[in-house]
């Protein structure tokens, strides 16, 4: 009997379909339908009799759930195992299911922090900061970069899984995955720190003090030279005195005082409060609604 082999075209078909893994996500067996859907091109190629095809379909409708991207190396390994089996190697059903279950847990633990909590926040923040100025490059950059990274990852890790086969379990236990997760969480925390500083905005409006400044500490608007000469003189004084030079009275707000400690100080406190509340199992949705309420109350009583 001639050996059946999965060609690159077959593997690409599987890779394409694998993108729809979560489509039939259900509370019973989670991603099983999408997994089976992705395996169909390979099953068609490897098995010719109706009984074998039916058995293979049923085998791949078992419970499955992991992160949708790191699932790619798992499906690669499974392709290799199915290929061996179709060529007569004694690969049991339980071995295939065992590889799937054994890999999905640890890999999901890498996929979530790397993709959802590091790469997406970084690319999203990059695109969003451009988009907030109305720049179309922002959304395009996010969309293109994300999909290039994602597709490259899906294809190359699937190929890696297919080539390494069941040996992959050894590679996984090596330190590489741990290292990737560690780098991702360091980078993620660093970027989240800067995002909190830049994009969580709280500003308190109460005025702490109003001081009438000494002569010379403000621009004497009434006695400026006429015409362009006056503008020049005002600008010169402004650059020497800073923003407090614009008015006779120097107004200090609560926010100004807080910003002197470090800009964004209250934003960090708010973020840490949210962390605590989330840890106490308060739903993020409840916190979000409360923050809107606080904002409205704050504006109504004029302290925010």
């Amino acid at each position: 009997m001639a050996e059946v082999k999965l060609t690159q075209k077959d593997r690409m078909a599987v890779c394409w379909r694998h993108q729809f893994l979560q489509g039939s996500w259900n509370y019973e067996r989670m991603q099983n339908g999408g997994w089976c859907y992705a395996m169909i091109p390979a099953i068609k190629k490897l098995y010719s009799s109706k009984e074998e095809q039916s058995a293979a379909l049923k085998r791949h409708l078992e419970f499955y759930n992991t992160h949708p991207y790191v699932s790619a190396p798992i499906i690669g390994v499974t392709l290799a195992l199915e290929e061996e089996r179709a060529n007569g190697a004694p690969v049991e059903d339980t071995a295939i299911q065992g590889v799937k279950v054994g890999m999905m847990g640890p890999l999901a633990g890498v996929g979530d922090p790397v993709f959802w909590f590091t790469v997406r926040p970084i690319l999203g923040a990059l695109g969003a900061s451009m988009a907030m100025g109305g720049n179309i490059i922002g959304p395009i950059l996010f969309f293109v970069l994300w999909n290039v990274i994602r597709m490259a990852f899906l294809w190359y890790t699937q190929e890696f899984g297919y080539n390494v086969g069941s040996e992959i379990a050894k590679d996984l236990s090596g330190g590489l995955l741990g290292k990737v997760t560690e780098i991702a969480s360091i980078l993620g925390m660093f970027i989240i720190g800067s995002l909190v500083q830049r994009w969580v905005s709280i500003s308190f409006t109460p005025v702490v003090s109003t001081v009438t400044q000494a002569e010379g500490a403000y621009i004497d608007w009434a006695n400026l030279p006429a015409g362009a000469e006056g503008i020049k003189s005002a600008l010169e004084q402004y650059s020497a005195l800073g923003p407090t030079g614009l008015n006779v009275e120097k107004v200090t707000t609560l926010q100004g005082n807080l910003d002197q400690l470090i800009p964004g100080f209250v934003a960090v406190l708010l973020t840490l409060l949210c962390c605590r509340l989330l840890k106490k199992n308060v739903s993020p949705i409840v916190i979000i609604l409360c923050l809107f309420a606080v904002g409205i109350i704050g504006r109504f009583f004029n302290f925010m």
Binding site: I192, L195, V196, W199, V200, S201, I202, S203, A267, L270, T271, L272, C274, C275, L277, L278, P284, I287, I288, L291, F292, A293, V294, G295, I296, G298, R299, M304
Partner: peptide, 12 residues
């Protein structure tokens, strides 16, 4: 004002 603070939840 609320919208400015809500980002903190996602970061948290």
């Amino acid at each position: 004002v609320g919208g400015g603070m809500v980002a903190a939840v996602g970061y948290a």
